[in-house]
Nucleic acid binder design. Structure first.
Lengths: 165, 165
DNA sequence: TATTGTTATACTCTATAACTATA
DNA sequence: TATAGTTATAGAGTATAACAATA
């Protein structure tokens, strides 16, 4: 016999069972928990999760304008400014005027930026490994596929376009 | 032939593919999107999602103290005060002094509160149906099971204790 | 001294609008 | 006039601490 369930039941106040039946509640709750962990982990590297998003985006296609970056990440232009300031102060990205349109900044990764991106990937990999530890490999893959289906439905830009060609 | 993938690829800035490979990113993003929708839906009823949580909890075991409610929902005591104020103003819950310990408030559902709870359930059901529409019934069940496994791992109070007895 | 409910405070995130310089 | 980047401001959400009443 293990510790009786009723012991837990009476010692600590439990959340409504009703909420556990809601996929949406679980999704929102787990998503929030994971986001909180991510913020804490990235903080140790002097960054925030959005910094990683910016670095990853620049790595896939360099020299983008700030407006393009913001749109890709669904951020407001004004929010991106502070993120880029932080990255630029650490020498991870460069901002240069676009000679063809002097209103624009062309943002690009520096060598240090690529190094930082590698660190970010390591952080994310470890974090995700820890978070998904309760699931076996097959379950993780299934979960990923299901979430990807949903994500693609709500943001077509997540779709497979480009992979086929 | 459908619209070419390259058209979307070049017209709109796309998020980093790298992030799509991250289950955690998808989870956090979908969770946030769903939470935002929930807030908007509940707002039409003059409530917030936490109000539903409180009502559901009271329905499962009435006359709890505020500290107990807060702990069950993982809220800070001070945060619960405002939530209960809102519910009390609308006549959905009652606060009474505990005669055995006059520091405590015993909170209970009113008949109107039960009616409001029914409305909340309808809201959640519709919202979840819409959100999970891209998935068939079997996929929804699978997703729910996987999320529940994770949730139980991170909060043992979500475990099956009590269902066996 | 510790606990319950309450109030006050601060800090993050986010959304919006206004400002500049360029076009 | 419209756009790109920037700055300033306000709002919601949350976390922390201080407070009065009671134990």
């Amino acid at each position: 016999m293990q510790a009786t369930p009723t012991a837990l039941d009476q010692q600590v106040p439990r959340p409504p069972k009703e909420l556990l039946a809601s996929t949406g509640f679980l999704l929102a709750r787990l998503g929030y928990a994971l986001k909180a962990r991510s913020i804490k982990e990235f903080e140790l590297a002097g960054l925030v999760p959005y910094h990683y998003s910016v670095l990853a985006l620049l790595d896939e296609g360099a020299c983008q304008s700030q407006a393009t970056i913001a749109e890709a990440l669904r951020l407001d232009r004004s929010q991106l400014v502070g993120l880029l300031d932080g990255l630029e102060e650490r020498g991870l990205v460069e901002r240069r005027r676009d000679r063809n349109d002097r209103r624009r900044h062309l943002v690009s990764l520096t060598p240090s930026g690529r190094g930082a991106l590698a660190k970010c990937r390591a952080i994310v990999k470890r974090l995700e490994g820890e978070f998904l530890a309760p699931l076996d490999e097959e379950s993780r893959q299934t979960l990923h596929d299901l979430l990807l289906q949903l994500a693609r439905h709500y943001d077509p830009r997540f779709g497979p376009g480009g992979e086929s060609g």
